[in-house]
Amino acid sequence: MKSWLYSLVLMLAATTAAWAVEPDELLDDPVLESRARELSKQLRCVVCQNQDIDSSNAGVARTMRTLLRERLIAGETNDEIIAFFVDRYGDFVLFRPRLKPATYLLWFGPAVLFAVGIGVVFVTIRCRSRAVLDGTADPLSPDEEREFEAIFHENEGRRDP
């Protein structure tokens, strides 16, 4: 609790009149600058609640933006720059988690879940239609049969010439 209060005080103290990325930080080279913007959206401001350094107005974020641009000018690759910040702040600083065993579940979980979902759906549909063929499920009632035909014919009737 105390540490929470403290960080709040800290945040207020570190807040200056600045608002996100400042004009004097921008690079003249548009290609480098757009890389800078893209990178600074992936880096987390270390004193803020949940913000990237691009939109943060904290002093540390400004320094991080400046360092990032200096490294870009020095010709470093995006990976090298990211590694520079990770060396100092750990993976916490990355808004886009790196692929490693601890994040496999994060990155592949959704796709696996979807695949499993498709599998379950497929099996269910097949089981049900087989149950119908075996006669273990209720066959269509005469009403349903008629309705079925109606839909079918309606579709055919609707077919564009």
């Binding site: 800290l10 945040m11 270390v46 004193v47 540390v60 400004r62 320094t63 991080m64 360092l67 100092r88």
Partner: peptide, 14 residues
């Protein structure tokens, strides 16, 4: 004064 060394030390505040 510019806070660069602070980043080298990985500080998140004072």
């Amino acid at each position: 004064s510019e806070g660069r060394v602070g980043i080298e030390w990985g500080i998140s505040g004072v």
